[in-house]
Simulated scan of single mutants.
Amino acid sequence: MARPRKFDEVEVVQQAMSLFAQNGFNATSIDELVEATGLLRGSLYKAFGSKLNIFLIGFEECAAAFDVDNERHLDLLTVALRDLTLSDDSTKEICQKILANHSDSLALNLGKNLLQRMEK
């Protein structure tokens, strides 16, 4: 019988998404996720399978509540578009949904966000 988890998956995903929003997907290492979440590497992999799966869980949640005026949402969309859409179809589909639902007001905010990230 498996032991019950002693961590809150929602909280772990939120911590991971904060790192992804700040650093980007490619620039966030598993070691940084381990440090931020306080979990062991094996626990992260057992619970989520991969770094990409952690991102997808959080990005789906972001997409469901997407707000074009929310800087974190824009950061995560920018990260997804820049780091993952060419290599991951699931991320691409989520991005397409967001863009389809928010096309009128998104372009300007997304462009501003991208320029701000380049200045950091």
Score class of each variant (00 low, 15 high):
residue 94 I to T: 11
residue 47 A to F: 02
residue 109 N to S: 12
residue 108 L to H: 09
residue 80 A to M: 02
residue 32 E to V: 05
residue 17 M to W: 06
residue 65 A to Y: 10
residue 39 L to S: 00
residue 114 L to N: 10
residue 120 K to I: 12
residue 78 T to L: 03
residue 35 E to Y: 09
residue 27 A to Q: 15
residue 99 L to H: 01
residue 48 F to A: 01
residue 32 E to G: 06
residue 37 T to N: 02
residue 100 A to H: 10
residue 52 L to Y: 03
residue 53 N to A: 14
residue 27 A to T: 13
residue 59 F to R: 00
residue 3 R to N: 05
residue 113 N to V: 04
residue 70 N to K: 13
residue 108 L to F: 11
residue 3 R to D: 08
residue 88 D to G: 01
residue 76 L to Y: 03
residue 41 R to F: 09
residue 25 F to Q: 06
residue 40 L to W: 09
residue 11 E to S: 10
residue 9 E to V: 09
residue 69 D to N: 15
residue 118 M to P: 00
residue 6 K to N: 13
residue 68 V to C: 10
residue 26 N to Q: 13
residue 6 K to E: 08
residue 25 F to E: 06
residue 96 Q to W: 08
residue 93 E to Y: 05
residue 29 S to A: 13
residue 89 D to R: 08
residue 38 G to D: 03
residue 54 I to G: 01
residue 116 Q to L: 14
residue 114 L to D: 07
residue 28 T to A: 07
residue 34 V to Y: 01
residue 63 A to G: 13
residue 71 E to T: 15
residue 1 M to S: 11
residue 97 K to S: 11
residue 42 G to L: 04
residue 17 M to T: 07
residue 55 F to C: 01
residue 74 L to C: 04
residue 23 N to Y: 15
residue 102 H to K: 03
residue 102 H to Y: 12
residue 69 D to A: 14
residue 92 K to V: 00
residue 30 I to L: 14
residue 85 T to D: 00
residue 45 Y to S: 01
residue 3 R to W: 04
residue 88 D to P: 02
residue 105 S to C: 10
residue 96 Q to T: 09
residue 42 G to M: 06
residue 87 S to I: 14
residue 54 I to T: 09
residue 13 V to F: 05
residue 26 N to R: 14
residue 4 P to Y: 04
residue 93 E to F: 08
residue 108 L to N: 12
residue 118 M to S: 13
residue 19 L to T: 06
residue 97 K to Y: 04
residue 85 T to A: 04
residue 118 M to W: 04
residue 96 Q to A: 15
residue 106 L to C: 06
residue 47 A to Y: 00
residue 71 E to F: 08
residue 3 R to L: 11
residue 68 V to W: 01
residue 96 Q to K: 12
residue 4 P to C: 04
residue 52 L to W: 07
residue 11 E to K: 08
residue 5 R to V: 04
